[in-house]
């Protein structure tokens, strides 16, 4: 805080700019639980009726919400786990080990990190068709993992870089193998990084929309993002209260994680995610 300047003009301007966003956020929650007269914004009563999608089929021909939620969960957790596992070894290699063409790999990593992956969606679509993985959850998982990896490796390498190398030097001097030094001495030091990538990739997978939309449009592999979008597009008359309830259900894990890990998340996103 700088007391040489006044706060209220800033609060005023920030408040004005934030109003639309706040309105959206507040009504997102309020509308999910309340009834309203048409043409009014003021709720007239509490209801759980917008959450009916949880216990009854909305209409035929659509996968049930729990199946879709399970799909989403499998998609997000598998992606997160695999990305983290691979980034753990690859990040260490790039940070600490010397091997042929290391500079080239690092340069490649940076290029991939900055590279806009959505441009590849058409080629990936065709490749999955050729491989026979089109319209399967496993196909989308593999693709998401691959696209998420450069970012994960980059972050992980950063964490490895901060571990003082004397720790490893001491381990190697004591006669432990490099593999053991990595597993027993270095890994515990980079646990924050491991957590960061797990959380980040989970959120990224949970929110992913384009990949499932293009690569697994069938009802068997549907995830919450595509489920919700299909619901919005299907309805001739938009039932926003229902949509918002679905959205709230969908965003619940995200919000919980956000509340718990807020500062950590801001750091990761600040570290250069896709803008």
């Amino acid at each position: 805080m700088r007391h040489n300047y006044r706060n209220w003009p800033i609060l005023l301007v920030l408040g004005i700019f934030s109003t639309p966003l706040l309105i959206m956020l507040v009504f997102q929650v309020v509308d999910s639980f309340t009834l309203k007269q048409p043409g009014s914004l003021i709720p007239s009563g509490f209801t759980l009726e917008h959450f009916r999608f949880l216990w009854e089929e909305l209409d035929t021909g659509r996968a049930g919400i729990w199946r879709v939620t399970l799909n989403t969960f499998i998609f997000a957790t598998t992606t997160a786990t695999v990305v983290t596992a691979i980034a753990l070894t690859a990040g260490y290699a790039l940070s600490r080990l010397n091997f042929p063409a290391r500079g080239f790999f690092l340069a490649g990593l940076i290029v991939l990190h900055a590279f806009p992956t959505v441009t590849l969606i058409i080629a990936i679509f065709l490749i999955l068709q050729i491989l026979g993985l089109y319209d399967t959850l496993i196909g989308v998982i593999i693709v998401k993992t691959a696209l998420e990896l450069p970012f994960g490796i980059w972050i992980m390498k950063g964490f490895y870089d901060t571990v003082p190398w004397e720790i490893e030097m001491a381990g190697v001097q004591d006669g432990a193998s490099r593999l053991r030094v990595w597993w027993q001495l270095v890994l515990p030091q980079v646990q924050p990084g491991l957590m960061a990538i797990l959380i980040f990739s989970f959120l990224s997978g949970w929110s992913e929309f384009i990949l499932p939309l293009v690569l697994a449009p069938g009802s068997d592999a549907q995830v919450l993002a595509t489920y919700m979008q299909a619901l919005i597009l299907d309805d001739t008359k938009a039932d926003f209260d229902l949509f918002k309830a679905v959205g709230l259900f969908y965003a619940l894990p995200v919000v919980v994680i956000y509340v718990i890990f807020q500062n950590k998340l801001m750091n990761i996103y600040g570290g250069g995610s896709k803008g």
């Binding site: 596992a85 691979i86 980034a87 070894t89 690859a90 260490y92 290699a93 790039l94 080990l97 010397n98 091997f99 042929p100 290391r102 790999f105 990896l149 490796i153 490099r178 593999l179």
Partner: peptide, 9 residues
């Protein structure tokens, strides 16, 4: 070892 660590990625 380095290449092995990098291989899956």
């Amino acid at each position: 070892l380095g290449l092995g660590f990098l291989a899956p990625a």
